[in-house]
C-alpha cells in the first residue's frame, strides 16, 4: 500500500553537481520545465493565426492575457505596465504547474515549499528594491503609521515590520499548503477505493463511494489550482502597488 504523501518524494532523474552543490535534475525540475515548455507552446501556437476574430485556442490565450492585464490595471494602475510581463509569466507558470499536477502520475512542483518560497522571496525582494529605488529612504515611512499616538509608534513600527515580513511566508505557504492538502486528500480517497476493492464482496460495491468523492474532489482541485494561481498573482500586484505608491 502506498502512503498518501509518497507522491511528493523528489526523485533524482540524473545527477548533476556544480561546485559542490547538488543541482541534480529531479522529477520536480522536469515538471517545472514541462510547465514552461507547455505554456510557451500554448501561447505561441494559440497566437500563431493572430486572427481578428479569434478561434477557441486564441480566445483562451487572449482571455488569459486580458485577465492578467485587467488585474494589473485595477490593482497597480498605469505605473504597473512595465511589470506586466513578469506578473503574466508568474500567473501562467503557477497555473500550468498546478494544472499539470492534477494529471495522474505527474508531479506537482508547487506542492514543495522550497519552490513556492523562492517564488515569493523573489517577489518580496524585488518589490522592496523597487520601493527603495522609487522612493529612496522615504520608503521606510511605509512602516510608520500616520495618525497614531506618539507613545505607541515604536510598537506599531515593530508590528508593521513583522507584518511586512509575513508577506513572503503567507504568500508561499498558502500556495504550497493548498496543493499539498488537495493532493494528499485525493490520494487518501484513492487508497480507500483500492483497499475496499481488495476486500471484496459487499466492500467492493462500497468502493464506488470514495471513487465518486475523487471525481468531485478533482473538480474542486481544478478550482483550487486556478484560484491559487489567481491569489498568488493578485497579491503580487498589491505588493507592487504598495511599493510604487506607498500610502
Amino acid at each position: 500500500m502506498h502512503s498518501p504523501v509518497e507522491q511528493f518524494t523528489i526523485k533524482t532523474l540524473f545527477a548533476l553537481n556544480l561546485l559542490g552543490f547538488d543541482i541534480s535534475f529531479t522529477n520536480s525540475s522536469l515538471f517545472m520545465l514541462l510547465a514552461v515548455v507547455l505554456s510557451t507552446l500554448f501561447l505561441v501556437l494559440a497566437m500563431r493565426p493572430a486572427a481578428l476574430v479569434p478561434g477557441r485556442l486564441q480566445g483562451a490565450a487572449e482571455m488569459m492575457y486580458e485577465f492578467v492585464a485587467d488585474m494589473v490595471r485595477a490593482n497597480v494602475g498605469s505605473e504597473g505596465r512595465p511589470y506586466f510581463p513578469f506578473v503574466f509569466t508568474l500567473f501562467v507558470f503557477i497555473l500550468f504547474s498546478n494544472m499539470l499536477g492534477l494529471i495522474p502520475y505527474s508531479y506537482t512542483t508547487t506542492s514543495q515549499i522550497v519552490v513556492t518560497f523562492v517564488l515569493a522571496a523573489v517577489i518580496f525582494i524585488g518589490v522592496t528594491l523597487i520601493g527603495l529605488i522609487k522612493h529612496g529612504l522615504h520608503f521606510f515611512s511605509f512602516f510608520v503609521p500616520s495618525g497614531a499616538p506618539k507613545a505607541l509608534i515604536p510598537f506599531l513600527v515593530v508590528i508593521e515590520v513583522i507584518s511586512y515580513f509575513v508577506r513572503p511566508v503567507s504568500l508561499s505557504v498558502r500556495l504550497f499548503a493548498n496543493m499539498l492538502a488537495g493532493h494528499t486528500m485525493l490520494k487518501v480517497f484513492a487508497g480507500l477505493a483500492v483497499m475496499l476493492t481488495g476486500a471484496g464482496g459487499i466492500f467492493a460495491v462500497g468502493s464506488v463511494l470514495p471513487l465518486a468523492a475523487i471525481i468531485g474532489l478533482t473538480g474542486l482541485e481544478m478550482l483550487v489550482a486556478a484560484l491559487q494561481a489567481y491569489v498568488f498573482t493578485i497579491l503580487t500586484c498589491m505588493y507592487l502597488n504598495d511599493a510604487l505608491h506607498l500610502h
Binding site: F142, P145, G147, F155, V158, I159, Y164, L235, D242, H247
Partner: peptide, 24 residues
C-alpha cells in the same frame, strides 16, 4: 507582537485593505 501583527493583517483583510502596512 507577531500575534498582534497577524490580527492586524486579518482586520485589514476583512475590512478590504488587503494587507497594506500603515494606516489610511
Amino acid at each position: 507582537l507577531g500575534a498582534a501583527a497577524g490580527m492586524m493583517n486579518v482586520w485589514r483583510l476583512v475590512t478590504g485593505r488587503n494587507m497594506k502596512a500603515g494606516y489610511f
